[in-house]
């Protein structure tokens, strides 16, 4: 009952190439980034990989680069670095803001953006940012590099488009310099995962994405379209939960989640500057 993982081998990868090679050569291996989603699962023995390949030391996957039209964030960049990055705050302020709302400071100092996205937890915050801003994931595997849009990235519950022999290396966020944004995270207890969350990115290609409103992180498609076509805040908010199949748990049943989604959407829209 909890706390002690099953036995596993531990390998360190110094480069992406080495990590890819280890993924092929080790049976039943898992990549270890910040360990803040994987290790809890291992401690509960919900997963028991035979080998952990620690990629957290790969320097080429760290940090934020301004490449002109996009911000390229290395997959191993810690939440805390994203939260405090001036460049991110300037060009993708929604990302910096939300990174600062993930868990508590300990979690943010360990967890990585790549780990959060690949883990694909529908209750995680950062996938909604990728979806609302229209980010692109850069994935490397034996067959070379692939680019996957956020919309195609989240496949199923805790499952993304990243194959078992692939590594997410970076995320490209289109710049949203000067555009409004809003993020509403509803929790019962501070520093928890969202019961429901809503991310709003204003600007030319506006987007609204939802947290914990289904088995995968998802965009609020109808609401996003209404927003793009200039609908009023209340009308957009009313569409927030359209097409969702929200989970039910002790904190919220499906009805309550749908209601929260539209309340939070309205608040996020107002924060993003819509009236």
């Amino acid at each position: 009952m909890g706390m002690i993982p099953a036995r596993f081998d531990y390998r360190q990868a110094g480069s992406v190439a080495e990590a890819l090679q280890l993924l092929v050569s080790c049976d039943d291996a898992k990549l270890l980034a910040g360990g803040h989603s994987l290790v809890p699962l291992m401690k509960m023995r919900l997963v028991s990989p035979a080998t952990l390949i620690d990629i957290s030391g790969i320097a080429e996957l760290q940090g934020v680069a301004d490449t002109g039209s996009v911000l390229r964030v290395g997959a191993l960049t810690r939440h805390r670095v994203v939260e405090r990055s001036q460049v991110v705050a300037q060009h993708v302020p929604l990302l910096a803001h939300v990174a600062g709302l993930v868990g508590d400071p300990q979690v943010r100092n360990r967890g990585t953006i790549g780990g959060s996205l690949v883990h694909g937890d529908p209750a995680a915050d950062l996938p909604s940012v990728a979806l609302a801003t229209g980010a692109t994931m850069i994935v490397t595997g034996p067959a070379g590099e692939r680019r996957i849009t956020a919309a195609d990235f989240f496949v199923d519950f805790l499952e993304t488009a990243v194959g078992p022999d692939e590594i997410l290396t970076a995320i490209e966020f289109p710049k949203r310099t000067g555009a409004g944004f809003g993020y509403e995270k509803f929790v019962r207890r501070s520093m928890d995962y969202a019961i429901v969350g809503v991310a709003v990115q204003a600007g030319e290609q506006p987007g609204i994405a939802l947290v914990n409103m289904g088995s995968v992180p998802r965009r609020a498609e109808a609401a996003s379209q209404a927003l793009a076509s200039g609908a009023a805040v209340d009308a957009v908010a009313a569409l927030a939960a359209d097409g969702t199949n929200p989970p039910e748990d002790l904190n919220a049943n499906a009805d309550y989640r749908r209601h929260l989604a539209s309340v939070l959407t309205k608040r996020a829209l107002l924060a993003a500057g819509y009236r």
Binding site: R188, R189, M191, D249
Partner: peptide, 9 residues
């Protein structure tokens, strides 16, 4: 699932 409040709460 068992919500022990944290200091900010």
């Amino acid at each position: 699932d068992y919500l022990v409040p944290a200091a900010p709460d």
